[in-house]
Lab assay of single mutants.
Amino acid sequence: AVSDRLIGRKSVVMEAISPQNSGLVKVDGETWRATSGTVLDVGEEVSVKAIEGVKLVVEKLE
């Protein structure tokens, strides 16, 4: 599936994300709604860990 190619990809937070609120990330020039178990600020680099419905699950790059 097209979405499977996103797992493991680097992306950049475009709208802040917290455990309570989804935000936005940009992956390969496309904007996606995303969630995370931690707070992520605009501009942080993250990695796509999973896809749940139409949202990406991301975490901060170490």
Rank of each mutant, 00 (worst) to 15 (best):
E52D: 14
G37N: 15
D41M: 13
I51N: 03
S36A: 11
V13A: 02
S36R: 00
G29I: 05
V39D: 10
R33F: 10
D4G: 09
V39H: 14
S36C: 06
V39Q: 11
V27S: 02
E59N: 05
V42M: 05
G37V: 11
V25P: 01
K60T: 05
L61K: 07
E62P: 12
I7P: 05
S22V: 14
S18C: 09
G23E: 02
G29C: 11
E15C: 12
D41K: 13
A50Q: 06
K49L: 13
E30F: 10
E59K: 05
T31G: 03
L24A: 09
V46Y: 00
A16L: 09
L40C: 15
G8P: 03
K26N: 11
G29Q: 07
T38P: 01
V42D: 02
G29S: 07
W32R: 03
V2L: 14
D4R: 10
V58M: 03
G43H: 04
E15I: 11
V27W: 03
V25E: 00
E52C: 14
E15A: 12
A16K: 14
L56N: 00
I17H: 02
D4A: 11
E44D: 10
T38S: 14
A50F: 07
E52N: 10
K60P: 10
L40K: 01
R33A: 14
A16Y: 08
A1E: 12
E59R: 04
E62T: 11
L6W: 06
G37E: 14
L6N: 03
A1H: 13
V2D: 13
L40T: 02
G37R: 12
K10E: 09
V46R: 03
V46E: 02
G53I: 03
Q20R: 09
K60E: 04
V58L: 03
E52I: 13
Q20Y: 12
K10H: 12
V39G: 06
S11P: 08
V39K: 11
V12T: 09
G53K: 03
T35M: 10
V54Y: 14
V48H: 01
V57P: 01
A16Q: 11
V13K: 00
G8Q: 03
V48R: 00
R9S: 09
V54R: 12
V46K: 00
E52Q: 11
M14P: 00
E62D: 12
V58K: 01
E44C: 09
V57N: 05
S3T: 12
D4E: 14
A50R: 10
T38M: 13
M14C: 11
G8R: 01
V58H: 01
V13H: 01
S36W: 03
L56H: 01
D28G: 08
W32D: 01
W32Q: 02
V54E: 15
E52K: 09
T38N: 10
E15M: 12
I51P: 00
I51E: 02
E62S: 13
K55S: 15
G43N: 05
R9T: 08
V46M: 01
L6R: 04
K10V: 14
S3L: 14
G37I: 12
S47D: 06
S11R: 00
S47K: 14
E15Q: 13
R5G: 09
S11T: 13
R9C: 12
K26C: 15
L6Q: 03
S36F: 01
S36Y: 02
D41S: 12
D28I: 05
S36L: 02
L61R: 07
V42G: 01
D28F: 07
Q20W: 14
E59Q: 08
W32I: 04
T31H: 08
G37A: 14
S3C: 13
I17Q: 01
S3A: 13
K10P: 13
G53T: 03
R5W: 10
L6T: 03
N21W: 09
L24C: 10
T38Q: 15
L40A: 04
I7Y: 03
E52W: 11
E52L: 12
S22N: 09
D4N: 13
G37H: 14
V12F: 08
S47T: 15
V58W: 01
V46G: 04
D41G: 11
R9E: 07
R5M: 08
K26E: 11
D28P: 01
D28K: 03
E45R: 09
W32N: 01
K26A: 10
L56E: 00
K26M: 15
K26T: 10
Q20P: 15
L24K: 10
T38E: 14
M14D: 04
V42H: 02
E30T: 09
L40F: 08
D28Y: 05
E15Y: 07
K60R: 14
S18K: 06
I51R: 07
S22M: 12
V54I: 12
S18F: 07
S11Y: 04
E62F: 12
E15F: 06
E30I: 11
E45T: 13
S18H: 07
V58S: 01
S11K: 02
K49W: 07
A16D: 03
V12I: 14
M14H: 07
G43K: 04
K49S: 08
E45L: 14
L40Q: 05
P19Y: 04
N21Y: 13
E44T: 12
G8Y: 02
V12E: 06
A1M: 12
G43A: 03
V27C: 08
E59M: 09
G29K: 06
A1C: 14
A50I: 04
V13T: 02
S18L: 05
S22L: 11
V46F: 00
T38R: 07
V12M: 08
S3M: 14
K60Y: 06
A34C: 03
L24G: 03
I17M: 04
G8M: 02
S3E: 10
E15T: 11
E59L: 05
V13Y: 01
P19I: 05
R5K: 10
I51Q: 06
V57W: 09
A16W: 10
L40M: 08
K49D: 03
A34V: 02
A16P: 10
P19W: 04
W32L: 04
K55H: 15
G43S: 03
V2I: 13
T35A: 06
A1W: 11
V27T: 03
I7H: 04
D41L: 13
V25F: 00
K49Q: 08
E44M: 11
E45S: 08
L24Y: 11
V39N: 13
I51Y: 06
E44H: 05
S11V: 15
R33Y: 10
D4W: 10
G37W: 13
T31S: 07
L61S: 08
Q20K: 10
V27G: 01
S22C: 15
E59Y: 06
A16C: 11
E15V: 13
K49V: 15
V54S: 14
V12Y: 09
V39E: 10
A1K: 12
